[in-house]
Simulated assay, not measured.
Amino acid sequence: MNEQPQDPQVHSLDARSLRGIAHPLRMQLLNALRHGGPATASQLAAKLGESSGATSYHLRQLAAHGFVEDAPELGKGRERWWQTVHMGLRFDDTLLNDRDPEVRGAADLFMHEVANHHTRELATWLGTRGDWSEAWNRSSDMSDWTLNLTPELALELIHKMHDLLESYRALAPADGTPDTERVRIHTHVLPARTD
Rank of each mutant, 00 (worst) to 15 (best):
M27T: 06
N97M: 14
R78E: 07
A192H: 00
E50Q: 13
V68D: 11
L190E: 06
G176K: 12
R34L: 11
Q6E: 12
D14N: 15
T194I: 00
D141M: 01
A172R: 09
R138D: 12
L109R: 15
D141G: 04
L157I: 03
E113Q: 14
D14T: 03
M161I: 13
L109E: 14
S42I: 09
T124G: 07
R99L: 08
A71K: 07
L157W: 01
G49D: 03
V10P: 01
L89C: 09
N148Y: 00
R104A: 04
G66F: 03
A174H: 15
V114T: 14
L171M: 15
D163T: 12
D108H: 03
L18G: 07
D7K: 05
R184Q: 13
W132S: 04
T94I: 09
Y57R: 15
E79W: 04
M87L: 13
N137I: 03
Q28I: 02
R138I: 06
T55D: 11
L190F: 06
R129M: 15
T94N: 05
E73R: 10
L13S: 10
A45F: 14
D163N: 12
L44M: 05
D141R: 13
L171W: 05
L122F: 08
L25T: 15
T194G: 00
T84S: 13
A172S: 05
S140E: 06
V114R: 14
A170R: 05
G77P: 06
G88H: 12
E152W: 01
L59T: 07
M1C: 02
R169S: 02
T146P: 00
Q6N: 12
W82S: 04
L109V: 11
P101H: 10
T150E: 03
A135S: 12
D195E: 06
R169M: 01
L109Q: 14
T55F: 15
D144G: 04
P38H: 08
L171D: 14
M27F: 08
Q61R: 10
A174P: 10
V103M: 04
S17G: 12
E166F: 15
I21P: 08
R80V: 09
H86F: 11
